[in-house]
Computed example of a mutant assay.
Amino acid sequence: MLVLVLVYFAHLWRAPHAGDAWRVSRRARAPSQAASGRGRAALVRAGGRRACGGVRVAARWAAAPAHCVAARAHPLSAHSLSAWKISYRLHSHLYFETDIVRGVVHSHFNGEDFSNNIGLFEQADPIFTDDYRLDDADVSDEYLQMNAHNLSVVGWEGITGLPMDVPVSPVPLQRCRQYMNPVLELRSYEFCMQLKKNYTIEHGSAMLVGAEVKGLIAWGDKSGHLPLVILHIGYYRNWIENIVNLY
């Protein structure tokens, strides 16, 4: 794990910088968000540099890769905790940034093979909506092929720029395994996408079907030369709800 954290921080300083739905029950008042999947997309920064993307799952909570959440909590980063921020672009004219006050890593996250690579960031200020809906539908090859024209991941232009939909195409599971299994074996809650354009995307970026959030980028080549591995957020519905309602 120490090696993972060191490599991760080295990257930070080198990098250029509808189906069944479910909701989390907690409510709070703060700026409203745009009624689209992009309004859920977050950008996590560490000392002014990009750390990862995230997906808002509740008023005060965003899901992000566990390796990003764990990096903030590691003793090596203790001196910079106050420098970690989370940002949203809610409308074309409204940019919302707040402090991160807590990180929770999934108890079964494995830093060696990135299994259960999900965590949660609690933010200081809430974003209020009537409910917090994420798409919990199937992510089979058939479903993704049927929606191939409507798939994207959310990229960010600069540190405080507008989020933008970057088109992706589905990678059939069998073909993705041929690419990825020599590195890490895919799990049942993971599927693959391929960027359609030359773009560097952050781990943790939201993956959308239309305006519905299906998952976040868990691992893979961020420049898009190889498939990106997407973690299905709906698989962790109970865990997310339990954490959000615990605090």
Rank of each mutant, 00 (worst) to 15 (best):
Y8D: 03
E142A: 15
H232V: 01
P172W: 11
V153S: 05
G53T: 01
S223T: 14
A30L: 09
H11E: 10
N150Q: 10
G220T: 04
R49N: 07
I118P: 00
Q178A: 15
R89D: 01
V104I: 14
Y189L: 00
N245R: 09
E202N: 06
H79A: 15
Y247T: 03
S36K: 09
D20C: 10
G103C: 06
G54T: 04
R56V: 08
S25I: 12
A70H: 01
D99Y: 07
I159W: 08
A148N: 08
F191Y: 11
H17N: 12
I243T: 00
W61Y: 12
E212M: 12
H225Q: 10
A46Y: 06
L228C: 06
S140K: 06
S25K: 13
G220R: 01
A42H: 03
S107W: 02
N198R: 15
E112H: 11
I159R: 10
S205C: 08
R50G: 05
V166Y: 03
G19E: 15
C52M: 03
V7H: 13
A42K: 03
M207E: 07
R14E: 11
H91A: 14
L12N: 07
P172S: 12
I127Q: 07
A10R: 10
R40T: 09
S82C: 15
D165R: 11
Y95F: 12
R187Y: 05
T200C: 13
R187E: 02
Y179G: 03
N198I: 11
L12V: 14
V209W: 05
H232D: 05
M146L: 15
L186I: 07
S92C: 13
Y199C: 09
C192P: 02
L81C: 11
I243P: 00
V154P: 06
G155F: 04
Y179F: 14
I233S: 00
A124E: 11
E202I: 03
D130N: 14
V69A: 04
R175L: 12
C192G: 02
G39I: 05
F114H: 04
N147C: 10
G103M: 04
